[in-house]
């Protein structure tokens, strides 16, 4: 037994160091964001003299981070809402209702899951330009919905397939239409899956840079991540303000992670063990 215990610590110490290496970059960035330029130039590592919010304020106000933040919130909010509505409708139909073509539709969805955005971005940008949706919020929301819908449907379908058919039969006997079953039974039952897939989609959309960069070229339509890439050029000689901008963009994700870590992990691992 003693040997095993020593062995465990022998592993735990490198793992703790790795954990430190995982957290430290963010701690470092937070610390830098609290420093003055002078402090940073003098010593990269010294602890900031005080909790100074002026850099955060500066980044928030001066380069339009506030604007980008609002843009991102709007786009992510709309995208996730549409994804959940469309995805749960399709998931209910594909997971519970046997109808002609349902199997083929599900397989088509799975195939779409393996088409990366990079492969369709050129024709998609062209289509968006042709239809006047380029550089508009509806265009970007539509692109996000299209990008993450296959994953959403896949998850909702496997979740709803696990709901016992008896529940639906009972509801039908009670006089519910299919629409009633969807609204009164499937949506409430699907809440855990909807939460998980909603949070994941919010992260995907919030974190995206390629789609947004491609479809929202003008400066005041930028989403937050594109805004962060622009910061680099503007603040290459003012590292603390740059770090503050990065921190603003990371903060919502950090909060979501703290509250919903389990839901995120559930969504990420869906499909890895069953099927």
């Amino acid at each position: 037994m003693g040997g095993a215990r020593v062995g465990k610590w022998f592993v735990a110490i490198p793992m703790a160091l790795l954990a430190l290496a995982t957290i430290y970059p963010l701690v470092f960035t937070t610390n830098v964001a609290m420093k003055t330029r002078h402090e940073y130039v003098l010593d990269r590592f010294s602890v900031a003299e005080s909790l100074r919010w002026s850099n955060i304020e500066g980044a928030w106000n001066s380069v339009g981070m506030a604007r980008y933040f609002v843009n991102s919130i709007v786009v992510v909010g709309l995208s996730v809402t549409f994804l959940l509505i469309i995805g749960s409708m399709a998931g209910f139909a594909l997971g519970q209702l046997r109808f002609r073509g349902s199997r083929a539709l599900f397989l088509g969805c799975l195939a779409a899951l393996f088409i990366p955005f990079q492969v369709i971005m050129v024709p998609l940008a062209r289509t968006m330009a042709d239809t006047g949706l380029l550089d508009t919020y509806p265009g970007l929301v539509l692109a996000y919905v299209a990008q993450f819908l296959p994953f959403t449907i896949f998850l909702m379908t496997s979740y709803y397939a696990g709901v016992p058919a008896d529940i639906i039969d009972a509801a039908r006997i009670d006089g519910n239409t299919l629409y009633g079953v969807y609204r009164r039974i499937m949506l409430p039952i699907g809440r855990p899956a909807l939460l998980s897939v909603g949070i994941l989609n919010a992260l995907f959309c919030w974190n995206d840079v390629l789609i947004s960069l491609l479809l929202m070229p003008s400066a005041d339509h930028r989403t937050l991540m594109v805004g962060v890439t622009a910061l680099r050029g503007q603040y290459s000689d003012n590292i603390p303000t740059f770090a503050a901008g990065v921190l603003i963009a990371a903060l919502p994700v950090l909060l979501i992670y703290l509250f919903f870590q389990r839901q995120i992990a559930d969504g990420v691992t869906a499909g890895s063990t069953k099927g």
């Binding site: 139909a93 779409a112 088409i115 299209a146």
Partner: peptide, 23 residues
């Protein structure tokens, strides 16, 4: 009803993912 339920998803996936691939 099942077709109505899947229609928006099918439209979006076909129109904005499968068709662009061919295009």
């Amino acid at each position: 009803a099942p077709y109505v339920l899947v229609a928006p998803a099918v439209l979006i996936i076909v129109g904005l993912r499968l068709y662009p691939l061919l295009l």
